[in-house]
Amino acid sequence: MKILIAVAGKTGTALKCGALLARLLPGAEVTDLELDCPDPAAYEAVIVGGAVRMGQLHRKARAFLEQNEATLLARPFGCFVCCAFAERGDEYLRRNVPPALLAHAAAARCLGGELDPKRLNGMSKFVIGSMARSMEKEARPAPALDPAAVRELAAAVRTELDR
């Protein structure tokens, strides 16, 4: 079974989530959309994920979804977002994934997020650092990846493939 996990992000969190999914889905390969844009028609199932910044899914992930919508609608499909505000994950999915794809998805999940200013530079480092300090002052827990959501997404895609 060939499964494509295509991801895009700035700091590596989406890539990390892709790798976690690949461990749960035999035959899966992870592709960084910043480096490569594979043909989803060559795969039996596709999962697309990306980082969300300022409410927007990474441009490469959004473009991949839009350019390959017809192909993705013809096979088992799942999608995910990584973001600091997991409680807004469903909103980000609705805003950034074409409606037909979202309706077709075996699963669409927020897999959580990470705030690591060390992996950033420039203005992004400043903004994320400020956000982290603000969350600390409010005694709000730092964002973290959600292993249960990763397992749920993998299981839903596996179930769809078994049909």
Rank of each mutant, 00 (worst) to 15 (best):
108 A>Y: 09
152 E>N: 07
1 M>L: 12
58 H>V: 00
74 A>V: 00
137 K>Y: 09
21 L>R: 05
95 R>M: 12
100 A>V: 08
71 T>I: 11
77 F>T: 00
108 A>M: 08
142 A>E: 04
28 A>T: 08
107 A>S: 10
49 G>Q: 03
46 V>S: 07
104 H>K: 12
33 L>H: 07
71 T>A: 15
101 L>W: 07
96 N>H: 03
135 M>W: 00
64 F>T: 02
128 I>M: 02
101 L>N: 01
77 F>G: 01
81 V>G: 01
97 V>E: 12
63 A>Y: 11
22 A>K: 08
42 A>M: 06
76 P>M: 05
126 F>I: 15
47 I>N: 10
114 E>D: 12
129 G>E: 02
51 A>Y: 14
92 Y>P: 02
59 R>G: 07
106 A>Q: 06
84 A>F: 00
15 L>Y: 09
80 F>K: 10
11 T>S: 11
48 V>M: 06
130 S>F: 11
36 D>H: 15
100 A>W: 12
51 A>C: 10
102 L>D: 07
137 K>G: 02
152 E>I: 05
60 K>A: 10
116 D>L: 09
63 A>W: 13
7 V>K: 03
152 E>H: 12
92 Y>F: 14
148 A>F: 07
163 R>L: 10
32 D>S: 06
13 T>A: 13
128 I>N: 00
149 A>P: 04
82 C>I: 04
13 T>G: 02
129 G>M: 00
159 T>Q: 14
38 P>K: 10
105 A>N: 12
156 A>F: 04
29 E>M: 08
8 A>Q: 08
65 L>N: 03
36 D>L: 09
96 N>I: 03
49 G>K: 07
20 L>Y: 13
34 E>C: 13
138 E>I: 02
115 L>W: 00
74 A>Q: 13
104 H>E: 07
26 P>K: 06
21 L>H: 08
128 I>S: 00
109 R>I: 03
149 A>D: 02
25 L>R: 05
163 R>T: 12
59 R>C: 11
132 A>Q: 09
73 L>S: 10
142 A>H: 10
54 M>C: 12
89 G>N: 08
31 T>H: 15
157 V>H: 09
70 A>W: 14
31 T>I: 12
58 H>F: 02
95 R>V: 03
133 R>H: 10
151 R>K: 15
4 L>F: 11
123 M>P: 09
126 F>Y: 15
62 R>A: 14
23 R>N: 14
64 F>D: 02
147 P>Y: 05
102 L>A: 05
36 D>Y: 14
142 A>I: 00
116 D>S: 13
25 L>Y: 07
65 L>E: 03
121 N>W: 12
81 V>M: 03
11 T>P: 04
61 A>S: 11
103 A>R: 15
150 V>D: 06
80 F>S: 06
30 V>S: 09
89 G>I: 05
120 L>P: 01
112 G>K: 05
68 N>A: 01
34 E>M: 13
2 K>A: 14
82 C>N: 13
38 P>D: 05
48 V>G: 04
20 L>V: 04
6 A>V: 06
136 E>W: 01
48 V>N: 09
159 T>D: 15
87 E>T: 04
78 G>I: 04
157 V>E: 09
104 H>W: 11
44 E>T: 07
109 R>D: 01
125 K>L: 01
91 E>L: 14
